[in-house]
């Protein structure tokens, strides 16, 4: 019995908890991508670097707060900085819309032109981030580190395997739930939110109904910037901030959005968790886990790991390909095929 409980605790500690946190971060990122896709109808390659830009704003403001002695008690100061960072990041994104995307919207350009333009924006954002904060790792987490430490858990339960939950993981999940609830409330209950859904559904009819496209687009960008900043900050708190990592997050984030069905917010969230759980389940080494469940004299040679963590990107990629092969509209139906 103890062995089974230990095995479960082991899984919870190394698979379940990290996957929930990582899945929440991917879900928030994918939501940003999917909302831009739903309204503006292109895949925004600059989203990863928008996350980096927003996170950089959070970090700079956090440092500034720290230098003034402002803190958030046991919680990271970054949470206090977040709203300000969202405002700054939104400003950047709105400027990028004004000087880049608006022109192509007026022209009714092909989606792939937007895609190339977003690559240009990606370069610029990436350049800004590296120029201001540099390409290196930045750690900006402060406050308490753990909600439950593995040692305490062991003491409380008497098991030999502990479960530790980091504050950053707890914050990630709580923030994700709050943000998603707010977003769905906004999209389903408010006039502006409904007009965004209408615009995404049928642009011409939305115009006929008197919906102001400029306002819809501006609100979309602000939401995308906010989601990017939140997702980026949470990821940075949980792991660490490095501009290039954020570019690499583009693949799992897009995979999550496509798996869920591009343009479908619910799908993006589901997709985020599908990708996160697959990535961690496939790259987890089951040696110790098997040790608990198998008979005493049975001993695994090797790590019993399906795939080395070096290839965690391959997991998103394979899932992406499978979805494109078998169900190109995603698990939930998206707007784009």
């Amino acid at each position: 019995m103890d062995n089974i409980l230990n095995a479960l605790a082991l899984m919870a500690n190394f698979v379940f908890v990290p996957a929930i946190a990582y899945g929440s971060q991917l879900a928030l990122g994918a939501l940003g991508v999917t909302i831009v896709f739903g309204i503006l109808r292109f895949s925004n390659f600059a989203h990863g670097d928008t996350m980096a830009l927003g996170t950089m704003c959070t970090i700079l403001i956090t440092w500034w707060f720290q230098s003034m002695g402002i803190s958030f008690g046991p919680l990271p100061t970054a949470l206090l900085a977040l709203p300000f960072a969202i405002v700054i990041c939104s400003a950047f994104v709105l400027v990028s819309d004004r000087v880049v995307y608006r022109f192509y919207r007026k022209q009714k350009a092909d989606p792939v032109i937007y895609l190339i333009a977003s690559v240009g924006v990606m370069f610029v954002f990436n350049g800004i981030v590296r120029f201001i904060i540099g390409p290196d790792d930045q750690n900006f987490a402060d406050g308490e580190r753990f909600i439950i430490k593995a040692r305490e858990f062991k003491r409380l339960t008497g098991l030999s395997e502990g479960i530790s939950i980091k504050v950053s993981q707890g914050i990630t999940v709580v923030t994700m739930i709050v943000v998603v609830a707010l977003l769905f409330w906004f999209l389903n209950k408010t006039r502006t939110g409904k007009s965004m859904r209408a615009y995404s559904d049928n642009e011409d009819l939305a115009l006929l109904s008197g919906i102001n496209p400029d306002k819809v687009v501006a609100v979309t960008w602000i939401i995308a910037a906010a989601l990017a900043t939140i997702a980026g900050t949470l990821y940075g708190l949980d792991k660490s901030f490095k501009p290039f990592t954020y570019f690499q997050l583009l693949l799992p984030i897009f995979a999550a959005a496509i798996v869920g069905g591009l343009g479908n917010p619910l799908g993006a969230i589901a997709g985020g968790f599908v990708i996160a759980f697959s990535e961690i389940l496939v790259t987890y080494a089951y040696k110790k886990f098997a040790g608990y469940l198998m008979p005493e004299d049975w001993k695994a040679d090797g790590l019993i790991q399906l795939l080395s963590t070096d290839y965690k990107f391959a997991v998103s990629f394979v899932i992406l390909l499978l979805v494109l092969l078998f169900r190109p509209t995603g698990i939930f139906k998206g707007t784009g095929v």
């Binding site: 895949s43 989606p111 693949l251 496509i258 070096d310 990107f313 391959a314 095929v337």
Partner: peptide, 22 residues
């Protein structure tokens, strides 16, 4: 991925290149 939206080809090629380099 060919025959699907241009976006999908873009993402898929991004993915394969990351994997090859990995």
């Amino acid at each position: 991925t060919l025959g699907l939206r241009a976006d999908y080809l873009a993402i898929a090629t991004l993915g394969i290149s990351e994997i090859i380099v990995a």
